[in-house]
Design a binder for these strands. Structure first.
Lengths: 209, 209
DNA sequence: CGATATCGGAGGCGACATCTCCGTTTCCGC
DNA sequence: GCGGAAACGGAGATGTCGCCTCCGATATCG
């Protein structure tokens, strides 16, 4: 913990660069990439952080916390369905803009970060779902853990958006939300995965077993 | 092209092993994996096939052709919505059982195989969509190219199914189909990607730009 | 049984990401 | 300013991994 000017400056540059690089290229980006983007040497990067995971943890901690906060904030919206839609759209927008973020949320990143953030998200979303169900605006057989699956489904939509049109994800989010809305439709054919298997839900989409 | 007993036997073993290995582990499986699974040496594998892509092409050619055939067959079903649902369920089931297949369809594999099969699929699905739209059972703003996106969205669901419960994908397919069905819902917020960008839709979900 | 096609799998090769080492540069207190 | 400690930079050592080749061993068949 130094106060030297160059040390502080480079630390700031590294974190800013990490934010941009992870957002654009995802968690596979190398620490060398980040160092180059920050305009510092790789040695400097490794002096500031023991490894790539440490940088990712710093950069992504508040991004994930933000998601949970958004879910809690959405409870302030009076209309239960509007609250749910607002939460999904805000969260999806954050993910569409940050590849590292949705990779983290959907299981490609640090398992510890997921284990920390998901229970928080699920708790907040459960409140949103309960309210929506009481109001009869969400299909009765939707469960809070489906949100983890929905985020996983949207990951390819975010990727498409990056390549084709920045807003394309809105189309497929709307499609999924319409499927989630209450109607006279037949019940979903299979129960959701048990909450205890949330980690498995998230790891899906990732390769290797 | 030999008729020696060991040659023919090993070729059969290799193709059978490739089918299993690609289905279970996806296109990232190595030809060495396939050889080991077939109980032959890697040298043998490389004598029968110039490289991994060649094996994949042999193994996946009929699987993808089957999808297109399924779409055409679905046109024989009288009810337009039932035809669409049947096609999706059949195709999704095939993909859920074969990781190599959905990786190929959604852009992780050989670009040539995709370029060959997708126009065929889109043509057949366009007929299904047109009929459904005329009958008013599908939302008017759904386009045939959305099917490529829907398959991409389902890929994570297939992955989950493999890890958690073999039928879990049915839940999320049902959700998406319910979103696709005609109702009094607001139109989708963004147009679908142009047909000309189909290759970009498919490449999404894959890493690196 | 011998000629020849085929087999098997160790290992060469190239690519790639992680992280270290040490000569050079910057900083800051005196 | 000046000197020494702190920090920098980036070449390259290291380890991993997948692709594919080579050649001595083995199987097939006339």
């Amino acid at each position: 913990m130094s106060t030297r000017k160059d040390y502080v400056r480079n630390r700031g540059r590294l974190i800013a660069a990490a934010r941009e690089v992870f957002a654009e290229r995802g968690l596979d980006a190398t620490l060398d990439d980040i160092a180059r983007h920050a305009g510092v040497g790789t040695g400097t990067a490794y002096r500031h952080f023991p490894n790539k995971q440490a940088v990712a943890a710093v950069v992504l901690a508040d991004a994930t916390a933000q998601i949970a906060a958004d879910a809690r904030t959405a409870l302030d919206i009076a209309d239960p369905w509007a609250a749910l839609v607002t939460f999904f759209e805000l969260t999806a927008a954050r993910q569409a803009a940050d590849r590292g973020l949705y990779e983290t949320l959907t299981g490609h990143g640090d398992a510890a970060e997921q284990a920390r953030i998901w229970p928080e998200i699920i708790t907040a979303v459960t409140a949103l779902f309960d309210r929506a169900r009481r109001a009869g605006v969400i299909r009765a057989d939707a469960e809070p853990q489906d949100i983890a699956a929905v985020f996983a489904l949207l990951a390819p939509a975010f990727e498409m958006s990056r390549r084709i049109a920045p807003d394309l994800w809105r189309r497929y989010l709307a499609l999924v939300l319409d499927g989630l809305r209450a109607t006279d439709r037949p019940p979903l054919p299979v129960p959701p995965p048990p909450l205890a298997d949330l980690d498995l839900v998230l790891k899906a989409g990732k390769g290797r077993g």
